[in-house]
């Protein structure tokens, strides 16, 4: 059997004295869609930042196609088709939409043909961005900023898209649009690793879920199972009280 597309083994991380992650293992196969669930402060975003190498970790390994890329940084991951969209304010507020895309295409900026093709593809998918090309990213609406973030990821033709809180602070109709894009991407074969607060949203486009609490994986299984089986949810929910 071939190695999974992405595997993070025993990831550990701390902020000073605060242990945030304590041996978290997450695997994503090619074309699979995986959710990372958990309450606020469970360590989900930290986990993503650690595996993509923008935050130092206290222990663990990251493998892509079975190849160890631990602490090689985001460039190595981009080169292997793994793109991370950070949560919250991930735009460059003073850069224009066009400039933001240009920054995203930095690794292949000299390949004019590829740049043109990527730009065309992205603008075809998000026509609104083409209209706002010269507008600064900071002046876009929240939904448009997230579209720009997706667009910046799509220029890389990702095999695995790591998304941190796609829906945070957005209106339901906007979330709907973004979810459609993500579902579409998944249908075209892109694997997903998504951090979500709300199980209901996650259940719509993920197959498998990890439930993170106090820096550890408390549950791993099919998202639909978690969503539909009240008793299972209860077990996960009350996991803390079991002791």
């Amino acid at each position: 059997m071939s190695a999974p597309l992405f595997e993070a083994q025993d990831i550990a991380a701390s902020y000073g004295k605060l242990r945030v992650l304590d041996g978290v293992t997450v695997r994503v196969d090619a074309g699979e869609s995986v959710a990372l669930l958990g309450t606020n402060g469970a360590g989900k975003s930290t986990f993503l930042r650690c595996v993509t190498g923008v935050q130092p970790m206290a222990g663990g390994r990251v493998l892509i196609d079975g190849e160890d890329v631990t602490s090689e940084g985001p460039q190595a991951l981009l080169a292997r088709g793994v793109v991370h969209i950070p949560g919250g304010h991930c735009t460059f507020p003073a850069l224009s939409v066009g400039e933001s895309l240009r920054v995203a295409m930095w690794p292949f900026r000299k390949d004019t043909a590829r740049v043109a093709a990527a730009e065309e593809r992205v603008f075809a998918r998000f026509p609104i961005l083409a209209e706002r090309r010269t507008q600064s990213a900071g002046s876009l609406s929240g939904g448009q900023q997230q579209m720009l973030a997706l667009a910046r990821a799509l220029v890389h033709d990702p095999r695995l898209l790591i998304i941190d809180e796609l829906s945070l602070g957005l209106a339901p109709t906007v979330i709907e649009q973004l979810v459609e894009v993500v579902v579409d991407l998944h249908a075209s074969g892109v694997a997903l690793l998504v951090v979500e607060q709300r199980l209901a949203t996650a259940a719509r486009f993920t197959d498998r879920a990890y439930f993170l609490e106090r820096g550890k994986v408390q549950f791993e299984g099919a998202t639909s199972e978690l969503h539909n089986r009240g008793d299972l949810v209860r077990a996960v929910f009350l996991g803390g009280t079991a002791s």
Binding site: P172, A200, V233, F237, L238
Partner: peptide
């Protein structure tokens, strides 16, 4: 409270996001 099924569902965010109406884009 812990025996209340609606509580469990709410805690894990199982409800529909639509209920969170009128959220403004940030």
């Amino acid at each position: 409270v812990l025996a209340d099924p609606s509580m469990v569902v709410a805690y894990l965010g199982l409800d529909d996001p639509q209920r969170n109406e009128e959220a403004v884009p940030s």
